[in-house]
Structures are given as C-alpha cells and as structure tokens.
Design a protein around this nucleic acid. Structure first.
Lengths: 213, 213
DNA sequence: TAGATTGTTAATCGATTAACAATC
DNA sequence: TAGATTGTTAATCGATTAACAATC
C-alpha cells in the first residue's frame, strides 16, 4: 500500500506514538529553551529516551548529536501534523453545563479550533448567551454548517438524545463527531467519531486505587 | 510475581483490555435483554468477537455456549472491577466553567462517584453556589478531605496554577489527581495521575480529518 | 579528539488474531 | 443430535526496548 509521499515521512503513525506526540507538543509549548534532548523529554514524561527518539524519527526533523532537538522546529512539525495552523470552525450541540463550559473554553485558539455556534432544542435556552455566542435552535444548523464550513461538532446532550443528534449532524454534512455523551454512537463509515466520555478517566482511577497494594 | 488470589482471576489487566471493558460496561447498561453474545458486543463496538471473549475471560464469569453471557452477571463483575459499588467522595478544585459543569454532572452517581465540595481561590466566587454546593476557599481543604475521606480530586484550574494546586492536594492527603488542565504535572510516586486534557481528543480529530484521503 | 547524543537495525515483548476443541 | 457459541492454546502481528554505529 502506498503510504509515503516522495521525500516525506510516512503519514501513518502507530496510535500510541500519536498520543505521545501530543504530550511532546504540550510539554514543548511550556519550554523556552532552544534545544531539548530525548533524555529530558523522556524524564519529564516518564518514558524512555529510546521511545522519544523513535517517535520523533517519524517526523521530518532530525536532531543534533550532543545538542538535541530544535524546539521551534519540533513544534512546527507537530503543529503541522495535528493541523493546528489551520483553524477549524466547530459547533457545539447542547447548551447545558458541559456544552457551555466547552463553548467558553479558552484553550481552543492555540490549537486551531474556533467555536462558531452553540445549539439547543430547549426554548428556554434559545436566545440566551453563552459567552459571546447566542444559543441557536437546531433549525439553524444547516445554515451555520454551510456558512462557516463546519466539519466538526461536539455533542454535549444527554445520553438519550445523543444518537438522534448524531444522525442529524451527519445528515447536515458534519464529518467528525466529538462525543461527550456517555453513549455508544453509530456513525456511517467515513464519519469520524471521537469519544470523550468523562466517566472513563475516573473509572481508571477507581480501579487502580482499589486494586493496588 | 504474585498476581493471583486463590480461586480468583488475575488482578492485572492489559491496559487496552481495561479500556474495552469500560466500553462493554457502558454498552451493557443500555441493554435490557438477559444474555448477549460475544458476536453482538463485537458488532456494536466494531471489534472482533475473539477479542471480546478474550477480554471477558479475564473476569470471574463464564458464558453459555449457544446463549452468550448473562448480562447482569457481567455488569456485576465489571462493576466490582471498577469499584462502582463503593462510592468515592471527590472534590473539585477550580469553579470556572469546567469545574462547575463537572460539579453538576449527573452521571457520577451511577458509577459510584459523589462530588462533596468545590474549591476556588477567587474571593468573588467563594460563597456562591454551584448546584447545591457552596464554593469553598482552599483553607477548608484539609477539613473537607478528612471529614469526607476524600481520596480523589479533580483539577479544573488554569494551566499556570495546576502544579501548585497538585502539590497542595497531595500534601493534604489526596491519593489520585484527575487533571483537566492542559499541563504536564508531576506527582510523587504512589500518587495516581489521570490526565483528561480535553484538547487531546480534538487533536486526533484534526489530524485524521486532514491526513485521510 | 573524546564524549554525548542522535538515528536505526535487530531482538524482545506483549497484545491481537486464528484455529479449534469443549460444551450446552 | 446438530449447531452455535464459548474458552483456550498457538501463531501472528505490531510496538517497545536494546544495542550500537553515525555524527556533531
């Protein structure tokens, strides 16, 4: 299978590698030195330096022996890998606590994400403001998706209506669903589904607190 | 190394298995049949039936040939595995959008989690209510942790103060940090750290939307 | 130069998948 | 019984780790 561009590194990354690359990005953003060694990255993230080097070897970047990796270049590569320099307009469906918090989240800007609208079907909420956004009825969905070329939608509705909302979003042309409802959703093939169910993290914590010595 | 109890299954699960077991739990909660086959679980979650059987084989439960797995028993086992039947009192630090949303989240009850307090250091927020909880100053931390035997704390403060808050929580006896700040935190060994950084999910989406054909 | 650090190949490890016997 | 489905062992696959040559 053809996975490479000429002169470029492979576009397919092992999933664990991709997850670690996100951590490198977060870490490097807080560094103000010019260079960092695989050893230092490894220490901060509690992994091995070999793994760091292997991960970075997937990118179009080389480090300098005795010096390490040039942080701005590394950030640039990672930024391109995750498409951070291109801003995606996203919408949020569900103006409850979680949806509203998400709509006001300040960290989106620096990863190339902009919330352009928030929707709800509760007439009490429609017309009220969440930050600078007015809550819109779902009948405005199609217009907004077209106008702002929205490809990504966050679902922050109760479990019961999550599938219904998903179907509607897909019908209106949404390409990726970012699901915050604790529901197992079905999407047509070709549509991306990313589950952000918040209960998962604390289940891991409960499990490990109980089972360890 | 001793990993087994007499007559019990191993307590160590491969991490990917543990993640899938959470999905099985979520899925089975919505089923109202008595039995389900590995094939059906697999279809719903888009994995293979062999994997489902292998995962379930880690539990103290056996299925019935021709019938499948008894759903209530499976739920019971998973509930025990994740310590759902024992309620953990947790606290939230940071009464901003995300912290407040978390404090009001309705889904905690059914996984054995109860939010007993929310803290902030902003005097404007202290004394106001988030749902039924009054926002408390951090000087009340020690008292609350002791009184409610709190082992788990969610961090919903800005990146800049996340480490400082972490240190304080650990000092006051917290055993697990559930970190919602996009920060790389350091914790002493023996303290559990679970990162729930919300930007990670959408980075995956952006990456995959851009790189796929 | 000597030494530190990268980059890559080979070896190991662990998880997934395949195959099939056991069983209801 | 025949057939469907579980449970487990063996084979495969893919990711991590180890080793070391390349290089600044």
């Amino acid at each position: 299978m053809l996975k490479n561009h000429i002169g470029r590194k492979p576009l397919m990354f092992p999933k664990p590698t991709l997850e670690r690359l996100k951590l490198y990005y977060a870490l490097l953003l807080t560094e103000n030195k010019d260079y960092i060694s695989s050893d230092e990255i490894a220490k901060r993230l509690k992994i091995t330096p070999e793994q760091v080097r292997k991960d970075i070897s997937h990118l179009n970047i080389t480090g300098k022996p005795k010096v390490g990796y040039h942080i701005p270049s590394l950030l640039g590569e990672l930024s391109e890998l995750f498409g951070i320099s291109v801003t995606d307009n996203i919408i949020i469906v569900g103006a409850g606590g979680l949806g509203s918090a998400l709509a006001r989240y300040k960290g989106f800007e620096k990863i190339g994400v902009k919330v352009v609208a928030i929707f709800d079907n509760d007439s009490e909420k429609i017309g009220t403001f969440v930050g600078e956004l007015m809550v819109l009825p779902l009948s405005d969905l199609q217009r907004v998706v077209k106008r702002f070329k929205v490809r990504i939608a966050a679902i922050c509705v109760p479990e019961e209506s999550a599938q219904e909302v998903t179907d509607l979003l897909v019908e209106k042309g949404i390409k990726a669903i970012w699901n915050f409802a604790p529901a197992i959703l079905h999407v047509p093939s070709g549509i991306l589904l990313e589950n952000e169910d918040i209960t998962r993290g604390i289940l891991s914590i409960k499990h490990m607190l109980d089972k360890k010595g």
